[in-house]
């Protein structure tokens, strides 16, 4: 019961900050609202007792992505810059695209039977512990994710090399 109330409070806060992120006039306020939204997601993971994923959410999204977004805002804009207002046509287009995406997601969830989920499930308390996640990642068997894990590391390597190529000055 208390967990349910907690879920709705967190979900409401996430929604409010997500809406604030897209409607704020000040671009840095948007970034800040995004942090609130990400933090709400981390709390939801905690409520699902997936502690490692919650920590990873904070580490990657708040500590990594948002910090870099703020860094770029700091480099490119100054306090007192006027906010760019998007033309009406672009707004309508964006709204249509987002609605289509939401519809697709809802439809897919509905087909899979997850939209209204009445089932409750309890997992072992350490199912998402760091040890278990690590073992599953490096397990070459049918239960493991060794190949996707290695492909992700390859992707990261390509990204790093790409960043170096872009950052390198001509003629060096």
């Amino acid at each position: 019961m208390i967990a349910d109330i907690g879920f709705y409070i967190v979900a409401f806060a996430m929604l409010v900050s997500a809406i604030w992120a897209v409607t704020a006039k000040n671009i840095l306020h948007s970034a800040l609202a995004l942090i609130g939204s990400f933090f709400g997601t981390a709390i939801l993971y905690l409520m699902l007792s997936a502690e490692f994923i919650a920590v990873a959410q904070v580490l990657v999204y708040i500590g990594g992505v948002v910090i870099f977004v703020i860094f770029i805002i700091l480099l490119t804009s100054r306090l007192g810059d006027k906010a760019e207002i998007a033309p009406a046509m672009r707004k309508i287009l964006a709204f249509a695209l987002c609605s289509a995406m939401l519809g697709t997601f809802l439809h897919a969830l509905d087909r899979a039977g997850y939209l209204v989920n009445t089932k409750t499930a309890t997992a072992a308390s350490d199912f998402a512990s760091m040890r278990n996640i690590g073992l599953r990642f490096l397990d070459p068997g049918a239960n493991g994710f060794l190949v996707p894990f290695e492909i992700i590391s390859l992707l990261l390597l390509i990204t790093v090399i790409g960043a170096i190529v872009i950052a390198r000055k001509e003629g060096e």
Binding site: L59, I62, G63, I67, I70
Partner: peptide, 24 residues
Amino acid sequence: PGMGVPFIIAVSSLGILGTLLAGW
């Protein structure tokens, strides 16, 4: 917490955030 070290790395980013926001 069982993942004390990742937790420490995660929360120490708040300091960077405060610095950046203060300067801006």
